[in-house]
Design a protein around this nucleic acid. Structure first.
Length: 502
RNA sequence: GCCCCCAUCGUCUAGAGGCCCAGGACGUGGCCCUUUCAAGGCUAAAACCGGGGUUCGAAUCCCCGUGGGGGCACCA
């Protein structure tokens, strides 16, 4: 069932780095807007001035941009419902809060935080669900008005019904019914004049014409409250969709702050920013998180963004929590690396070579792409794999230069023989070098692998490398010869007569 | 303590009463390809939380239990 012209929003509270959970919520919203020819709004929920962090907001914008999740309206791009920072919409919330007071659906409360805290403690001690005492709930309107005018510090509280029950509908879970007496008289407007989430989000969603609210599961318990607020205003509710939470890789519980730090130490992270630095592709990350909680029924798992836009479907979402699996991210990242054009991959590799200390451009990278593309799971592996192409000199240990089951002298002799032939080869390329080298091995009674292994170490300086002859061609005859000569010299130094591991 | 949500291989999931002695993917083991490492191909092991119902028939519906998760702020 296709949605048309959805108006959706992602409304984070920038208090820390953007992580996978937020990214997925943003992604799903974006997909719905895209596929329905709708509008995706980015709204910043910064009504808690103590916790708001401008750096976190910048990180949010960078992370979303990097992922390719684009918004139509938002703080940086503007739009018909500006401003998009809730801290700049105070008067709007005040007006609506007063409206509820006038309707008898909310009331002024003069209880101090200390008083509330005390009551709460007592309730907890009595093993009761902490609820507002109701002390100001039935204050005569005149008196309350008077005290407000006199400048007495106050908040506005919602007057939740005390009897009966309410039934709300979540797209993934169906109808949820709760007793009204379990719903508290929550604060809507704080004494500092800022609205609380419960008011600000409802007002904005209504004013911005939001049709589908996709948000984290942690909001599910307050959904009945939100439904009551909508009812109090006489507004029509949006379609509510509560996304399951992400669990730790172990599947045991939500990621705690300590967990995330622990994870970063081991080279993994749930922060988008880190993932980018670690060499993951936005395509890989998007594909990965899209499939945590949603699936497509023909078993397809490879999804470029455009396909997600076409295929994503709220009906196929899964309400149960999902454990994060970084192995699967590696898999998707590899898939997307291989799906990149050679030109594009070269371009994306440049920064990783730069941070590894190689000053190369995409053009210099171009020839090596075909031989490294299937060998990478993350972009930062590029320099490890192919750095030797750009090094003046490689530094294999003497041990590495000795062929399997050979002595140093035998190894030196073999390399010398190979050198003699490579020097005079009429053409120096992968195709022309392989056969003669096989012949050399034959002649010396060596297995091809024995000789090739030595050559690999000599030319690349590493035991794991891209294919040998292709590498030699790219490195070039001159450098190959120089590296061979150096290796032979190292091998012929006295005292190296022990046979190598077999 | 109270409220809410969830429950299929180790993990992500397919499964909307017979198509399921449960399918795919990741990971793991084996084989093939191969100069290393990958990629690719083939293949194997691996799950319906438990108990009651309903029904001719239940992974699928209902109830209870258990387990897991989330929430109970002038935070979002």
């Amino acid at each position: 069932m296709a949605i048309k012209n959805a108006r959706v929003r992602f409304a984070p509270s920038p208090t820390g780095l953007t992580h996978l959970g937020s990214a997925r919520t943003a992604l799903y919203n974006y997909l719905i807007a895209q596929q329905s020819d709708g509008v995706f709004i980015l709204r910043i929920e910064d009504t808690d001035q103590k916790r708001y962090d401008p750096q976190a907001e910048q990180d949010l914008i960078d992370s979303l941009r990097w992922l390719g999740v684009k918004w139509d309206e938002g703080p940086d791009v503007g739009g018909p419902h500006a401003p998009y920072h809730q801290s700049k919409r105070m008067e709007i919330y005040r007006k609506y809060a007063e409206e509820l007071v006038a309707k008898g659906k909310a009331y002024y409360c003069f209880c101090t935080p200390q008083e509330l805290e005390q009551v709460r403690k007592q309730q907890q001690a009595n093993k009761q669900q902490p609820h507002y005492s109701g002390r100001c709930r039935d204050l005569p309107a005149e008196d309350a008005q008077q005290r407000v005018k006199a400048g007495e510090s106050h908040v506005i509280r919602f007057k939740a019904p005390k009897s009966g029950s309410i039934t709300v509908t979540d797209k993934l879970r169906g109808e949820i019914t709760v007793e009204n007496r379990s719903i508290d008289d929550r604060v809507l407007l704080k004494s500092d004049g800022h609205a609380v989430y419960h008011l600000a989000a409802m007002v904005d969603d209504h004013e911005m014409g939001i049709t589908h609210v996709l948000r984290g599961e942690e909001w599910l318990p307050s959904l009945p409250l939100h439904a009551h607020i909508y009812e109090a205003f006489g507004w029509e509710q949006p379609i509510w969709v509560h996304l399951s939470v992400f669990l730790k890789p172990s599947g045991k519980g939500k990621m705690s702050k300590r967990d995330t730090e622990q994870m970063r130490l081991t080279g993994q992270s749930i922060f988008i920013k880190d993932l980018a630095a670690m060499g993951y592709l936005p395509e890989g990350v998007v594909n990965w998180i899209a499939l945590m909680g949603w699936s497509y029924d023909d078993h397809t798992e490879f999804f470029p963004m455009q396909d997600l836009v076409e295929k994503f479907d709220l009906e196929k979402m899964n309400p149960s929590p999902a454990a994060i699996d970084f192995k699967k991210l590696d898999h998707f990242n590899g898939l997307h690396i291989r799906a990149l054009s050679e030109k594009e991959l070269a371009k994306r590799l440049v920064p990783y070579f730069e941070t590894a200390g190689y000053a190369v451009d995409a053009k210099q990278l171009a020839p090596i792409i075909p031989i490294i593309q299937t060998r990478m799971t993350t972009l930062d592996e590029g320099p490890q794999l192919a750095g030797f192409f750009f090094q003046e000199e490689v530094e294999p240990s003497v041990d590495m230069l000795i062929g399997k089951g050979l002595t140093a002298t035998a190894s030196a002799a073999a390399l010398r023989k190979a050198l003699g032939i490579l020097e005079v080869l009429p053409e120096f390329n992968a195709a022309s070098a392989e056969e003669p080298m096989r012949a050399v091995a034959d002649e010396l009674g060596l297995k091809a692998g024995q000789l090739f292994g030595m050559l690999r170490n000599v030319v690349t300086g590493q035991e794991v490398s891209p294919p040998l002859f292709e590498s030699m061609e790219i490195v070039g005859r001159e450098t190959v010869i120089a590296r061979l000569q150096r290796a032979i010299k190292a091998l012929e130094r006295p005292g190296e007569e022990t046979p190598n591991r077999s």
